[in-house]
Design a protein around this nucleic acid. Sequence first.
DNA 1: GACCAGGCACATC
DNA 2: GATGTGCATGGT
Length: 228
Amino acid sequence: MNHTQGTPKKSRKRTPLRQKNLLRIYRSLLSHFGPQHWWPAETRFEVIVGAILTQNTAWSNVERAIGNLKAAHAMGPEGLRNLPLPRLLQAIRPSGYFNIKAARIQHFLDFLYGPYQGNLEALLRLPTDLLREELLHIRGIGPETADSIILYAAERPLFVIDAYTLRVMTRHGHFPEGIGYEEAQHWFMRLLPPQVDLFKEYHALLVAVGKRYCRTRPYCQGCPLENS
DNA sequence: GACCAGGCACATC
DNA sequence: GATGTGCATGGT
């Protein structure tokens, strides 16, 4: 983890988080940025591979890796499983951490071709709680990656928390400093109607606002969430 | 050249 | 349980 982000430590006074606040934030972001249409992938399988490749990595780097995998005819369970390791490493090199991510992709494939015999649809049909539990047992798939797969590939209403979500919500006083993943997720899940499209768009919009207004100086200038 | 990016596992205390 | 560290490329 990189602890050197230049974000101010001090957050403003917290306001109690209520459903109307969360919905107002959503409407502000949607109005400011427009629909984000996430996840940018052609198939469910591509969502999963992309979710692993984008761990702590800029999406632009992931796009190169995904392009390489497609060029190698390896953006499907069979194709990727049959891709020799040196070629896998070469293909995903632009996404960084390529040794680790290759192992993580292979762990997922081992799991998929174990109990599910390569049947991705069967895996994604599991009840949400069980699917999450199964995914979290795969080495290299943590809470955010699992929840991204569940929301964007299995299309179940599970809110994805990421670094931008925590940063934006903390910065604007809606979450306390140091809030954990599960607790943050609980707030969104408890206060929002469980709608897949809403959860997808909300997550994507939080990333959009985080990238645009929480990353570079001057922070927050022009941010649609100022005074919200 | 330094900082940052759509995390996670593991070691150590 | 909390904290620190390694993993790596490419853009700003």
